[in-house]
Write a protein that binds this DNA or RNA. Sequence first.
DNA 1: GGGCCCGCAGGG
DNA 2: CCCTGCGGGCCC
Length: 486
Amino acid sequence: MVEQDAKRQPKATNIMASKTQLPCDGDGICMLCKAKPSDLETITCKTCVTPWHVDCLSSPPETLASTLQWDCPDCSSPPEDVPLPPIGNNPLPTTPSSDLVAAIRAIEADVSLTDREKAKKRQELLSGKMQSDKDDHDANKEKKKKGDDVLDLLDERLNCSFCMQLPERPVTTPCGHNFCLKCFQKWIGQGKNTCAKCRCVIPSKMASQPRINSTLVVAIRMAKLSKSLVSGGPQKVYHFVHNQNRPDKAYTTDRAQRNGKANAASGKIFVTIPTDHFGPIPAENDPERNQGVLVGECWEDRLECRQWGAHFPHVAGIAGQSNNGAQSVVLSGGYQDDEDHGEWFLYTGSGGRDLSGNKRTSKDQSFDQKFEKSNQALQVSCLKGYPVRVVRSHKEKRSSYAPEKGLRYDGIYKIEKCWRKVGIQGFKVCRYLFVRCDNEPAPWTSDEHGDRPRPLPKISELKKATDITERKGGSSWDFDFLSGER
DNA sequence: GGGCCCGCAGGG
DNA sequence: CCCTGCGGGCCC
């Protein structure tokens, strides 16, 4: 039933490989003449979507039509012994990327459209039928459904045949199949030289020097973007909605130049809470395990912690919005003014630090902190008595309550007071008194404080520790734990 | 071990 | 779009 389709053969440009042929690099610079050709002087391969400098090609295409259907020297004229790729009875080409991308680019280039309109057009394009611009209001529900379909369609056709996910740093074989760079290299490393999907021979050049199909990257991104913009509409779109295509673990994006968690993007968020969800994460929001996030749960790093919803920001210590309150904090011991007593602790606000140059998280304070942004969010949570999830990190061991390793979810606290004072570095800091308030036994397990639950701190103890110099908001001292209401 | 530099995510 | 940020890896 396999049809050999002659039309699949590259246009007979019959490149003579007498002269070295090299494409443009990632910056659009011709690797042969080192010049940066304009768009008009550049031609893009229909298979691998790599740009080439026309003037440096030994045999450039002659007609407009052949330009659109052009295969670069790497992808055309396979060795004589290579059979034509077997084509199934699917009438669609197996490389949606080139045509699709050309059309998407045309939309992108249209300056008369807003981002939103572009997204809509992209989405229409991807769904294969141009939808008339009828009333935008009640079509929302339908669009939402359609958005999913589009992404699903993309998924099926673009997925890496090894890991079945949307490819990470996708490479495309001349036969039109996409793989993650890593998956592809692993396959080649096993001595294979045929496409894992259709068994067609992979040219040795491509095998030894696979190129990232950057345009496919863009297409996948655009499709996702278009989905989020069109389906989400004005209402809030939570992260977990667009989560389905992320791998289970943090991953290196095509943009990152290094592997590893330092520059990684987050893996799938497993829980179904919105990022502004207050309080514990219950079992009903944990479809993965159906148990919720339990006090004492530990994670390797912040990205993993994020995936379970305990604390969403990747770097920042406070999760919150100035008008809404703060959902969670991370205690790392990195702040001199922090004081961790387990059952209660003093937390320092963010800001006031010198972040010039590349210092993302300098420890040197150079100006006063204010109750704004995330500091204000904590203030709101204090005033309203909202529950705050607390995660401890033991990067610097300051307290016997710190977890043995990694990060640990230590349950719900309330911010009993907040104020500003002059910190150790001589600048004002925002300060918050957190007191544990959930019903589970205190999670500390050190010998020193082995008796659980640990008694609540005495007011005098807190007063002494907090050293209030300026009070800003906060509940009164008669907070509920005095009466035993936790 | 400290400094530097990277890219992601989120708020505004 | 810009700025910030209680990471994290690598290089010195």
